[in-house]
Design a protein around this nucleic acid. Structure first.
Ligand code: NAD
Ligand code: NAD
Lengths: 219, 219
DNA sequence: GGCAGATTGTGAAAAACTTAACGACTATCT
DNA sequence: AGATAGTCGTTAAGTTTTTCACAATCTGCC
């Protein structure tokens, strides 16, 4: 939106929702002020990093005082566009897709899964977690112009085909849970969440990078 | 294990399982050789990065030729300890936990979920995806000495309590799917996978980092 | 056997990210 | 009022990761 926004490092941008959630918690608890040190302990991010992150948005705190929770919250709400809802579709109502549909992403979140899609006739027409399941044949009709991002939980063999259809239907982002590394035009953003790899990587680190006292944790 | 292993950058280590999977695919397809460029297109990682990553393990390829798939595969299998199985426990057989139990992580993988745990008596005693569900009271008895890592899919309010018990039972790593940022002793490794944050971050990027032609994709 | 073309492995540079350190300031206590 | 104990924002330094670019070297073919 803003040109200045482009100055914010990606690593920082990825932490913003985390900060937002914890500031929200503090606010619910009635806390009025918070220091970068306190926040650091809660979210497990170095306090200097937090101060640096916040500073990209200007001077949000007061020296010698810390941050005002109320102010921080309203600032982050604005910055993360929490007041406007982003519509999302979920493709593939299987094990993983069903779990996501049951989960209320809206709780702390500006996103709403509006529709789910599947090719299995038994699933089509049902409603899961308040989300109607539509037939995949209707994908383009329903998504076109209305949906910003998609959550992809189909079998990996179907991933590229569905991706092409999503792109054609005008989504700008895809959260890809399949192991397939999908190909998209340059203006589409894909984030991969590859659960098998996460598990394998954890195991690799356990065997080859034994943590010493004082060593830092990994995200 | 090896002292030399410690030289491998963490960013590289995280990509190893991805490489392994694709090399495996190539091998199944009967492909005999592969170049860093081809691999790059498949896994969406810059070819120079791939060559650099491989080079940490020595000279795995041949100039003017590329990499021998068979050799690469056997090398990675050894390096990722694919021949020895790591035992894992899953705690919290709810929406997400059930999905994971149904999924066969073993397929491309050296990990096996041996036991699941839940506090709900209706779930205890059942078997999901071939994994027996035990009562959470038995956690210490069953896990102690036998299980290397845990997948945490309990409600976030229960996360820290269960974590303490897991640590006490001797697990060395936790894959934490709850939004809670758990506290552990220094020798325990925790990887957080925070799905709400991933979705929110994707949306944030869509709005604030419109991709230009030629810009790189995010992992 | 020799040459054209392909591809690696890596030094060096750049980019991205994190952390330490400290001056400037706040709040509070005595 | 002055002393004390924080705390931020930022400069500078350190670390990690990615990327460029090319000599070295191998392949495959004639
Ligand atoms: N379940 C897990 O724990 C897990 C873990 C890691 C990765 N994954 C990946 O997530 C994806 C989904 O996994 P899952 O366990 O939910 O699989 P699943 O088989 O349970 O679900 C897939 C769903 O997609 C539907 N589908 C198939 N082809 C389709 C098409 N062309 N259009 C629309 N819908 C279609 C099926 O009807 C099914 O409902 C897979 O790619 C899998 O590799 C899952
Ligand atoms: N489902 C999703 O899509 C999703 C998305 C993002 C994050 N999460 C997080 O993942 C976690 C699990 O989500 P879910 O949707 O599967 O929740 P869920 O409520 O369906 O499952 C939680 C399970 O944990 C069990 N449980 C509760 N307390 C326990 C205890 N003390 N010991 C052992 N078992 C206990 C419950 O019986 C239940 O079976 C939550 O922390 C949630 O915030 C889930």
């Amino acid at each position: 939106m803003d040109i200045e926004q482009h100055k914010i490092p990606q690593a920082t941008a990825k932490r913003l929702p985390l900060y937002y959630r914890f500031i929200n918690n503090l606010h619910s608890q009635g806390k009025l002020r918070v220091s970068s040190k306190e926040l650091s302990e809660a979210v497990k991010v170095d306090s200097a990093t937090i101060r640096r992150d916040f500073s990209y948005f200007g001077a949000l705190g007061k020296k010698g005082y810390g941050y005002n929770v109320e102010y921080l919250l309203s600032f982050f709400r604005k910055t993360l566009d929490q007041d406007e809802i982003t519509k999302v579709a979920l493709i593939g109502v299987g094990n993983l897709g069903t779990a996501f549909l049951h989960y209320n992403f809206m709780k702390n979140n500006n996103t709403k899964i509006e529709y789910a899609f599947d090719s299995n006739p038994e699933k089509v027409g049902t409603e899961i977690g308040g989300v109607p399941v539509k037939h995949i044949d209707k994908l383009e009709d329903i998504v076109k112009g209305d949906i910003t991002a998609a959550i992809l939980t189909v079998p990996s063999a179907a991933a590229q085909g569905i991706t092409d259809r999503l792109v054609h239907s005008g989504v700008s982002g895809i959260l890809n849970f399949t192991p397939a590394r999908i190909t998209v035009p340059e203006h589409i953003r894909v984030h991969h969440i590859d659960l098998s790899i996460e598990l394998q990587a954890l195991v690799y680190f356990l065997k080859h990078y034994p943590l010493e006292a004082g060593e830092e944790q990994e995200e």
